[in-house]
Design a protein around this nucleic acid. Structure first.
Lengths: 128, 128
DNA sequence: ATGCATTTAATGCCATTGCATGAGTTTTAG
DNA sequence: CTAAAACTCATGCAATGGCATTAAATGCAT
């Protein structure tokens, strides 16, 4: 169809993604010791406000199952979440956010919002 | 400002980026033996239709200088580009696309366009 | 002209990611 | 009830990317 629109949109996505990822990595990392993926996982759990199974998280975060497994492992090592074998299906694992995890997320959230605002506001939908 | 818009846009970008990257990796890789970064570099050179310095490419591709250096190295190993020390500034390196590189790019271009069209057409600007 | 700071690209090192696989559990078919 | 198939998550491995550093070349100031 409109090939030009498609390609322009793709470049817009590429540019914003790179810029935002880079900034998030820097800001979240320096200020809160979190990577973008770690923050995203915490954020999903807080958003749902309940325990989530790995598989549920997998649907929400744009990571492979293996990558997610490792992110959760890192979060657990940092005491921000805990992993518990699921009661009714012992193949599954539920991820619970800890108080420390909630605190860290709450601290990091304004940083993330600030970064994203910086990047996505005052920009035309398809910036040149 | 409109926090909701910012976050929604970010999720849109994340989703499209993940989907497109994944599909490009698969399709370009399987059909043409190219990674997305490799294709992107070839594409930029073809688009400009001239030799480009590494640094110029760096501005156009969303890669660090070191990553770009390695992409070009891979492309050179595959005989798709050649690297020549710049005449007027012998620190610099110009990257020239080879005939084989042009051919490969021409073959891969429709694949890339097809993937992107699939993902970016018939979707509302902010898909659910 | 000489020495020092700067620029440019390549490389060492490490972190993160995806694919393929593995171990354990559940479900299904017979 | 048993065996095979499917599912869920973790891990080995290789690829890719970024940061910091290096080597070489250039520019600039004295």
């Amino acid at each position: 169809m409109d090939e030009r629109f498609v390609v322009d949109t793709w470049h817009y996505v590429l540019g914003k993604h790179a810029k935002a990822m880079c900034a998030l990595e820097r800001e979240l990392g320096d200020r809160h010791g979190l990577g973008p993926s770690e923050f995203e996982v915490l954020d999903r759990i807080v958003h749902h406000d309940r325990k989530l199974r790995i598989q549920e998280l997998c649907d929400e975060v744009h990571l492979s199952q293996s990558a997610l497994s490792r992110v959760v492992a890192r979060l657990e090592k940092a005491s921000l979440v805990s992993r518990v074998v699921c009661d009714d299906d012992r193949r599954g694992v539920v991820v619970c956010i800890t108080d420390e995890g909630r605190t860290r997320h709450a601290e990091a959230l304004p940083t993330q919002r600030a970064v994203l605002s910086q990047i996505f506001t005052d920009t035309p939908a398809l910036a040149p």
